[in-house]
Design a protein around this nucleic acid. Structure first.
Lengths: 196, 196
DNA sequence: TTTAAGTTTGACAAAAATGTTAAACAAAAG
DNA sequence: CTTTTGTTTAACATTTTTGTCAAACTTAAA
């Protein structure tokens, strides 16, 4: 069997993910990945065959991680409001850790002209849109195209973390200040979505 | 004098910007840029000395373009509400044309570990924050940390265009559908910011 | 303690991307 | 028309990045 398992394979992949998703180093070379992981570059080829293969794995992992997060929240049997509160908390925690994960997915899609994906899940999304529509009828949230509701939600959660380096400069804030602002933000987004 | 001007220099830079800002091809090589522009790759070196120099110019242009847009809107003497309506219209039109411009700035910053920038403009931003605070006192917009107000605004405008490839898949929409959704969105963002 | 298997390393090879140069070319000035 | 100057091209050189391979190493099983 494939015994031994020194953890090197995982180490390399995790280091790559950290460079891509956390540090936003979307141009990182195999050398940079290996150096950051503290291993010989050849091991990238030993474990992943090629740079492209590593990228493919990371790309698919990123998609899966994103879907798993959403599924866990969406498929829960909480009430809508609780569900949203939970979503904001879980998603933003991950976004604070890996602000550039979606970005990595998108730039890889653009790089390879990928125009479709397993991410679709038409039924699930439609179910979600319907649930949102029902809440609008009930009057818990403002009436609008339910797609805009989702887009607003994810925009408000994700974008400020993508643009963190810029925002820190613009608002003259240090890392700690900005983290506080993002924590405070969870509540704010919830209140924006459920007005009054 | 430096006469002649065949427009090649501009052509190359514009092509690069289009690849980076519009198509999100953040990894584009000089060869790809030259091919897309339909010119010999050597001309990139002839006009810009090096790849890095071209990137630098594009990077600084991107910053300037962004600042100019904001200045034009912010420095106008419109009433606050009109100003915001105008900002949404102008910014989203540009975001529809160049969805990845801010992204390019950010990834370049991450790539070179840049942690400050001419973009700061502390006085101007503080003025804006104060203006927003005053509007909150007046009751035209919901009370919150004014920074969140700005972050919300730009998130709702910019993010859906960055994630367009993903959203089209998730919502099962074609390009035209999505453009309509974004047009419709201008009004929605305005109404979200100025509730009721 | 040998043996066998996976793991790690360094030297080398190949490929990709960038940079340089001299010569060909084209258009305006003399 | 020819000279001058800026522009474009192709061939070549360099650098950077990626990939391969055999030998050294390490650990678990025989």
């Amino acid at each position: 069997m494939t015994a031994r398992d020194t953890g090197t394979e995982q180490l390399i992949k995790n280091t790559a993910k950290n460079l891509f998703f956390a540090e936003g180093k979307l141009h990182a070379t195999t050398q940079e990945i290996a150096d950051t992981a503290g291993v010989n570059r050849t091991l990238v080829n030993y474990y992943f065959r090629s740079r492209d293969a590593l990228f493919d794995q990371v790309f698919h992992d990123a998609q899966k991680e994103l879907l798993d997060l959403l599924d866990e929240v969406i498929d829960s049997d909480m009430a809508f409001k609780e569900k949203m509160k939970n979503l904001i908390d879980v998603f933003m925690n991950q976004a604070m850790q890996f602000p550039y994960r979606e970005l990595f997915i998108i730039t890889e899609m653009n790089r390879h002209d990928i125009i479709e994906s397993k991410i679709a899940r038409v039924e699930k999304v439609n179910g979600m849109l319907q649930e949102i529509g029902a809440e609008m009828e009930k009057g818990t949230i403002r009436k609008m195209n339910p797609r805009h509701f989702l887009i607003n939600l994810f925009s408000m959660m994700a974008y400020p973390l993508v643009t963190a380096p810029l925002n820190k400069i613009i608002f003259n804030m240090n890392d700690q200040d900005y983290t506080s602002l993002m924590e405070e933000r969870k509540k704010l987004i919830f209140e924006t979505i459920f007005p009054q």
